[in-house]
């Protein structure tokens, strides 16, 4: 069935209270401010970036590391690797707990990929964030609290879809990630009012479904 949600699988969650300073530095944390780390691996990278950002709204945590793995979760290095490792850092372990809770809540109940064709062989991530946290706002270079459309699809679908999204509403592309990314998808971040971001995201999703259904119709 088209546009069926594909729920992300949380593969591992660990907490390191009082992490070694060398480890903190290696993963981008500041031993002067951070003592503890929270780590998570998931089989979908983009919902996890959204969830990591969500954590910064619920707890005093900093997202110090978040990287997607090459070629995605279908080619993972191990059963727990998935597609992404996200690391949050905080001054105390209780903040890490609160942050991990927010990440898990977001992954289990909110952000997910959707099937763009009946077989589920094409997927789309047309996610709208109503209010950005400290992580993605810094990455996108827009103010925390602003809305943003986070759009991901495979290369062809994403490219045609981005054009449709930009033409559907008054939005600007703050960042475009043309293929190949680590996972060989393509992504874009659009900024505008919340209704504009929502309209753009749905136009993107509709176009991805259309391309997936009729790939050779010019």
């Amino acid at each position: 069935m088209t546009l069926e949600p594909i729920f992300p699988k949380i593969l591992s969650v660990r907490r390191i209270p009082g992490a070694d300073p060398a480890l903190l530095r290696a993963y981008g944390a500041d031993p002067g401010r951070h003592t503890s780390l929270g780590l998570i691996t998931v089989d979908q990278d983009d919902p996890t970036y959204v969830a990591l950002d969500e954590a910064t709204k619920h707890a005093e945590v900093d997202v110090v590391y978040a990287r997607s793995f090459y070629a995605g979760s279908a080619h993972a290095s191990g059963a727990l690797s998935g597609e992404i490792l996200g690391v949050i850092a905080a001054a105390d372990p209780a903040e890490i707990d609160a942050g991990l809770d927010a990440i898990i809540r977001c992954l289990e109940h909110d952000a997910c990929f959707y099937a763009a064709n009946a077989a589920g062989t094409v997927t789309v991530f047309p996610h709208v964030i109503a209010s950005l946290g400290r992580y993605l706002s810094a990455q996108a270079g827009i103010a925390p609290g602003s809305p943003m459309a986070y759009l991901v699809a495979p290369p062809m679908e994403a490219t045609v879809g981005l054009d449709a999204a930009l033409k559907a509403a008054d939005v600007t592309a703050v960042k475009v990630f043309p293929p190949p990314t680590e996972t060989n998808f393509a992504a874009s971040w659009l900024s505008g009012s919340l209704p504009a971001c929502e309209a753009a995201a749905m136009a993107f999703a509709a176009m991805v479904v259309e391309v997936a259904g009729a790939p050779r119709e010019r």
Binding site: L3, E4, P5, R105, C106, D110, A111, H127, A201
Partner: peptide
């Protein structure tokens, strides 16, 4: 605690001719 993305996708799905409604999201 959740974005409106899932509701929006449900609307789009109806517009594209999907018959069955989206499964309800697991409760928070």
């Amino acid at each position: 605690h959740t974005s409106r993305t899932r509701e929006l996708v449900a609307v789009l799905r109806r517009e594209l001719g999907g018959a069955a409604p989206l499964p309800p999201p697991p409760p928070v």
